[in-house]
Design a protein around this nucleic acid. Structure first.
Lengths: 231, 231
DNA sequence: AATCCTATGGTACGTCGTACGAGTCAATCG
DNA sequence: CGATTGACTCGTACGACGTACCATAGGATT
């Protein structure tokens, strides 16, 4: 509701008179904008995780006052929403061979999706709490079109879409949570060995130690697509 | 590390002398314990969501001082861990016919899993950030045994487990996030209609309006198991 | 009687999100 | 030209949070 804005105002007056520059501050800050705020937020989230993003830190990183942010953004939740969606944009090149190999196209989009989120592990833990942003909807739309073109029956379409979505979401969320556990790598290792007697089967198959996440993702996706393919 | 405890001390002295009871306070609070704390935390989470759980509120609900909690619990993160794991316990009855119908057994466990989490929607948004608790590992162990018994090749076993896990996780996380969006039901509705031109395919298939979540989950799970089944 | 362990909780500190309102500056209008 | 308006910035302050620190009390052990 609030925060109307145009993004006009190209550059600032650049500090003409010297008599108020408090100290050596060579920064010529561009004006605030929703875009700059979101970019800085993503940077902070990448660097310090979900808990590392505070409005004060964000303002510091932008060289502005804290409350100035609230002109461009509703509140902190809104920052999370925008940061998440900004990270999920898809630049899928529409090659001419898209129609002939629907399966490759779907796999490509879904792998890109997963990769985008793993580049920003905080995004996975944010997703469950936020509504669907435009970039997510775009991907669902594209997936829907692709499957439809592939010959999936209309009656099965929604189930197919959700199945693929669920698979990607789950894989990403799981993988990201493993990434985040660097703080207690030692504890995890110890827990694994201490529990090997209690969970013999998954210990034997080395379920938690298997590091070929990408391969497992691709292979499982293949199985799922097998199940979904029109027979 | 801290917070050793026995859980001994069965009941308190029940307030014998009246001369210090400040006012009509008919509560005979049992002593604190990790179990009571976790139970109260789950209750608060159910009622007020993730952000509604604070240590002060938790202490109030238990009729104790805030800092007393820290004797039994390391910190707030620890409370989240315990609450999450407590909600994921599985009471799978080991019927005799388990060996013959591995597929039904897997489906049963996975649907119970999903149902448990949907009973406590906050659990889905918590999962991505926390390590694997014992109850999660138990379920993975059971799933592993079941699939192994079903004849899934050892080489495919981990992929199969993760695929199913991912599917359930994704489905649950997605579903729970839809549940949580009751605060902006109006906004969502408006967004849907306003965006119907931009996303024609998913609008036409009514992807976001389809309310048969349970059916879609079961059906998609079927597809996935089809793909995973040894041929 | 002295000591120790378990358990409770009051006070206080630093940090958080953000409401409020005063400030600056350019554009517009009379 | 001065007055007004609207976009934008930000200092101050408030209430709520997690939790470190420390004082306390009572039962068990010595």
């Amino acid at each position: 509701m609030a925060a109307k804005h145009t993004g006009a105002r190209s550059e600032r007056s650049q500090r003409t008179s010297e008599w108020l520059q408090p100290a050596g501050e060579p920064r010529s800050e561009p004006p605030l904008s929703r875009e700059r705020i979101v970019a800085a937020a993503v940077e902070l989230l990448d660097a310090h995780g979900v808990d590392g993003l505070t409005m004060r830190r964000l303002a510091d990183a932008l060289g502005s006052g804290v409350m100035s942010l609230y002109w461009h953004v509703d509140n902190k939740e809104n920052v999370f929403d925008l940061a998440l969606d900004s990270v999920l944009e898809y630049h899928g090149q529409q090659t001419a061979q898209q129609a002939q190999d629907w399966r490759a196209e779907a796999v490509h989009m879904l792998e890109d999706w997963r990769a985008s989120m793993l580049r920003h592990p905080w995004s996975a833990s944010l997703l469950p709490r936020r509504a669907l942003g435009p970039n997510i909807l775009s991907r669902l739309e594209l997936l829907s079109k692709t499957l439809s073109r592939a010959g999936v029956a209309d009656a099965d379409l929604n189930v197919a879409i959700w199945s693929l979505w669920n698979y990607v979401m789950g894989a990403t969320v799981t993988r990201a949570s493993f990434d985040l556990s660097d703080e207690d790598r030692a504890a995890a290792q110890q827990r694994l060995t201490s529990l090997s007697e209690r969970y013999p089967t998954i210990e034997r198959s080395r379920l938690l130690l298997d590091n070929d996440w990408d391969g497992a993702f691709r292979q499982g996706l293949g199985f799922l697509l097998d199940g979904l393919s029109p027979r």
